[in-house]
């Protein structure tokens, strides 16, 4: 492996990269963590954000003196409601999710496999009391499921793998992965590299990716 001559994206830049691909008019659910940061990066495109606990049209965090105790998001943070927003109960909220009405869900993950399997809710098979929340519903329900995560674990292990080692959240659902190093599509042939950060070679990226990275002739890195 050659010496690193590239700069990994910061978390806000990862969010900004995802946000570039979010289209005007989409209904979008953002998972906890890096995905949450995407909302601030969509600019003046009209994108409607959904929160599992019964909000459409979720807006940014309020000023400290404008906090409304009744208005929280799925991460239990105080939020606001944009003009045209609405409230609904949990069964309707998950009908939106499971009924395929969301255009996009962006999730964080521990691992994604080259067949699109995702593991993002329990860190070990013997995890005593893991919390699944709405992750399994979102992963099977949204029209598009994208993952944004670091390319490697804190221990330096690949998060993009042939087969997930952590307990699965859903089978074969992830369509695209944005990491701090690259954008990768999940296709029927496996991972297809779409772009990398400047200065990072395919061979260096492959060395830290747990499954083959294909490159299509018309793509450019």
């Amino acid at each position: 492996m050659s010496e690193a001559s590239y700069t990994p994206l910061t978390r806000p830049k990862m969010a900004a990269r995802v946000a570039r691909d979010v289209e005007e008019g989409w209904y979008v659910n953002l998972g906890i963590g890096i995905p949450t940061l995407i909302a601030d990066q969509v600019g003046d495109r009209e994108v409607i954000f959904h929160s599992e606990n019964g909000l459409l049209g979720m807006g940014p965090a309020p000023a400290p003196d404008k906090i409304d105790p009744w208005l929280i998001n799925a991460g239990k943070q105080h939020v606001t409601l944009n003009k045209g927003g609405s409230f609904f109960h949990h069964a309707d909220s998950f009908a939106m999710i499971r009924g395929g009405h969301l255009d996009l869900c962006v999730l964080g993950a521990f691992e994604v496999a080259s067949n699109g399997d995702i593991a993002n809710w329990a860190t070990a098979v013997d995890d005593s009391a893991p919390a699944v929340g709405g992750a399994m519903d979102l992963a099977v329900g949204a029209a598009r499921v994208w993952v944004v995560m670091e390319h490697l674990t804190k221990e330096g292990k690949p998060r993009l793998v042939k087969s997930c080692s952590y307990p699965l959240t859903a089978l074969g659902v992830v369509q695209r992965i944005y990491t701090n190093l690259a954008v990768i599509d999940v296709t029927s042939r496996g991972f297809v590299l779409r772009e990398t950060v400047p200065g990072l070679s395919l061979s260096d990226l492959q060395a830290i990716t747990g499954a083959p990275l294909l490159v299509e002739e018309n793509s450019h890195g």
């Binding site: 949990h90 499971r98 699944v132 399994m136 519903d137 099977v140 329900g141 859903a170």
Partner: peptide, 26 residues
């Protein structure tokens, strides 16, 4: 799963004994 929880409650209230969902398959 949160959506399954909401739907199991809704089903109970609506007289539906069981339902099929893709959530948690596999």
């Amino acid at each position: 799963p949160q959506g399954t929880l909401a739907e199991r409650l809704r089903a109970a209230g609506a007289g539906i004994p069981a339902f099929f969902t893709p959530t948690a398959v596999g």
